[in-house]
Amino acid sequence: MDAEQGWRFLETMLLMRRFEEAVGTLGARGAFPGHYHLYIGQEATGAGAFSVLREQDRIATTHRNHGHVLARGADPGAALAEILGREGGLNRGRGGTIHLCAPDLGFVSTSGIVGSVVGLAAGAAFACKGRGDGGIGVALFGDGALEEGIPFEAMNIAALWKLPLLLLCENNSADAWGMAKGGYPALVHAANDLRAIPGALGIPAIRVEGIDPFAVCDAVATAAARCRAGEGPVFIEAMTRRWAGSAPLWPELATGITDLGMATGETPIPEGPHAEWFARNDPVLRLARLVLAQGGDSAARLRALDAAVCARIGAAERFALASPLPDPATATDFTFA
């Protein structure tokens, strides 16, 4: 393992985690309206994937976007303000959690209609191909998106036109609400291996362990290189871990505020329904254990890193809460460009 790369992944993943713990806490106390979705449990996939994407790449993502937008470098204060519907938000409070978007960071859109993401990203890939600057389109979506029709059509066209489209499916269906337990991947697909769907169109499809940022990074780097070389789309299925708090619509911080002591050994792993999460499935704790295994001053470095991230999120929260709500007089602004 490249230890420094591990630390960089961990910083990104901790930023996502502490950010979403703030979101969950604010959501639980009613600080913002509406429902929301958290990325907890999938941080390693986002951190690994975004570490290899380039500035000229164009990305479309879904309602579960917080981690993606942060990994791309969005300001956490502006992101949190957007979730709170504030004027200081990334989109001046017009989009909210489901539509966090940062055009200047190369996001083309963030759609709550999950399958649509694939069409938009394929369009970005089409434009990138014409531009010829090596940029690629990236679609980030969950397994559920493949239950809709647009991904089938868009993947077919992308394969036909050899578009530089990287399809990153974060399959978080294991133990999902409403699903059959223990089956793969879900009751809702006749295909019992999602790779068979792009595979039928001749799109190379690989599966990667989504809890491992190094594995995701390698897979995305290989896939992106293929796209940049003009060889057409690639599909990656990242198997992510289901987090217990991922209730439909209103998540709750079921596993509490992440205690890095569970990685250092200072905090014993509690018995109970979440023991497996703490011991094995939480990607943040897992990576923390890996960097700690390097020994040396890593325990102190971990504490310092977390303190810095927490301070950043604290500042983001203060910024977001201090940001004004949009002026009612502007309610109809921006309907047209």
Partner: peptide, 12 residues
């Protein structure tokens, strides 16, 4: 799918 591609391309 194709119109989705057109929309994505229009943003790029």
């Amino acid at each position: 799918g194709a119109f989705g591609i057109a929309v994505g391309a229009s943003m790029c």
